[in-house]
C-alpha cells in the first residue's frame, strides 16, 4: 500500500467530481491511497498572477506547507493546480526573499518548497509502471483510437523541470498502449484549449477547442483522452460553443483504465458528448488483448 498526498483542486470537487471518483477507484485498485490535504485552498489558477506575484506565491505556499507537513509526495490531477504548485515550490525553494515573504504570510504554517509534486501520468508511470498496467488490462480496447491530449500547461512548468517532452509528450500514449488502446499520432497534444476564456471570450475557446476536436478526428481518432479537468470540460462543451466541430467523446485517462479493468465507466452520464459508441465497441474479457 502506497499513500500519496492529494490536492484535488476546485474542479475535482465540482464540475469534474466524477474524475475524482474515477481516479480514487483506479489508484486504489493498484494499492495507492490518496490522502486529501487538510483544508486546502485554490491554487489561484491564471487569475492570481494577473493581480500580482505575491498573492500567487502565497496561494501556492499555503497548500505546499500543508502537504510538506504530511511528508508524502503530492499528486495534483488538475493541470493548473499541478503547474502552479510545482512552479511555486521551485520558486520558494530557490529564492530566499520569496521564501521569507510567504512564510511570514502563512505563519504558523511553514513551507520550504522541497515538496515533490506529481501529475496523474507520472503517478501511473512511477508508482504502478507499464508492466503492471499491461498485465491488469482485461478488456479489449483495440477499437479505442485515442488522441492523447495533454493540454498546454502540463509540460510547461517554466522554472521547474518538465515531467515529459515539452513539445511531444509521450507518457499518456505509453499508458494508453499498455491498456490495449490505440493512440493516434497527431500534432495537437499540447495546444491550448482556451482555458478560462470560455467565460470572458467564448469565441476564442470555440475556435481553439473546436480546432483540437477537428484535428483529433482528422488524425483518425474516435476518442480524446486527457488528464486536465478544464481541458475535458472545454472540449466536452464544443457542441455548445461551435456547432460544426467534430463530436468525439472526451475521456479522462482514468476512465480508459475503468474500461480496460472493468469494461464500463461508472459516470458516463456526466459526459456532455455521449460516450455510448465507445462503450459498446469494447470487447469482452478473454478476447485477444494486445
Amino acid at each position: 500500500m502506497t499513500t500519496l498526498s492529494y490536492y484535488p483542486g476546485c474542479s475535482l470537487k465540482t464540475s469534474s467530481s466524477f474524475y475524482e471518483h474515477s481516479l480514487r477507484k483506479i489508484l486504489s485498485f493498484y494499492g495507492i491511497e490518496l490522502k486529501e490535504l487538510d483544508d486546502w485552498s485554490c491554487c489561484g489558477a491564471s487569475a492570481a498572477p494577473t493581480i500580482n506575484d505575491k498573492i500567487t506565491d502565497v496561494l501556492g505556499a499555503r497548500n505546499i506547507a500543508i502537504a510538506e507537513r504530511e511528508g508524502l509526495h503530492l499528486v495534483a490531477p488538475c493541470s493548473a493546480c499541478y503547474a502552479r504548485t510545482k512552479v511555486a515550490a521551485s520558486r520558494i525553494q530557490q529564492d530566499r526573499e520569496t521564501r521569507e515573504m510567504v512564510n511570514r504570510a502563512i505563519s504558523p504554517l511553514v513551507c520550504t518548497g522541497s515538496l515533490e509534486v506529481r501529475n496523474v501520468i507520472e503517478v501511473f508511470l512511477e508508482y504502478i509502471g507499464t508492466e503492471r498496467i499491461s498485465d491488469s488490462a482485461v478488456y479489449d480496447l483495440g477499437t479505442v483510437r485515442a488522441a492523447a491530449y495533454y493540454g498546454c500547461v502540463l509540460t510547461r512548468t517554466t522554472g521547474a523541470p518538465p515531467s515529459d517532452d515539452i513539445e511531444d509528450p509521450v507518457g499518456m500514449d505509453i499508458i494508453l498502449r499498455c491498456l490495449g488502446a490505440d493512440p493516434v499520432a497527431w500534432q495537437h497534444k499540447t495546444e491550448c484549449c482556451g482555458a478560462g476564456a470560455t467565460i470572458t471570450n467564448k469565441k476564442m475557446t470555440a475556435s481553439l477547442s473546436g480546432h483540437i476536436m477537428d484535428m483529433a478526428a482528422a488524425a483518425g481518432a474516435n476518442a480524446v483522452v486527457t488528464t486536465c479537468p478544464l481541458c475535458q470540460l472545454n472540449l466536452d462543451l464544443t457542441p455548445h460553443l461551435k456547432k460544426d466541430s467534430a463530436k468525439l467523446p472526451v475521456f479522462f485517462l482514468t476512465e480508459i483504465f475503468e474500461l480496460a479493468l472493468f469494461g464500463a465507466i461508472e459516470w458516463g452520464k456526466r459526459h456532455l458528448i455521449p460516450v455510448d459508441d465507445i462503450l459498446k465497441s469494447i470487447g469482452t474479457p478473454g478476447d485477444d488483448v494486445a
Partner: peptide, 9 residues
Amino acid sequence: CLNCATCSV
C-alpha cells in the same frame, strides 16, 4: 494572451 506559455518554451 491565455498564458499557455508556448512562446516561453
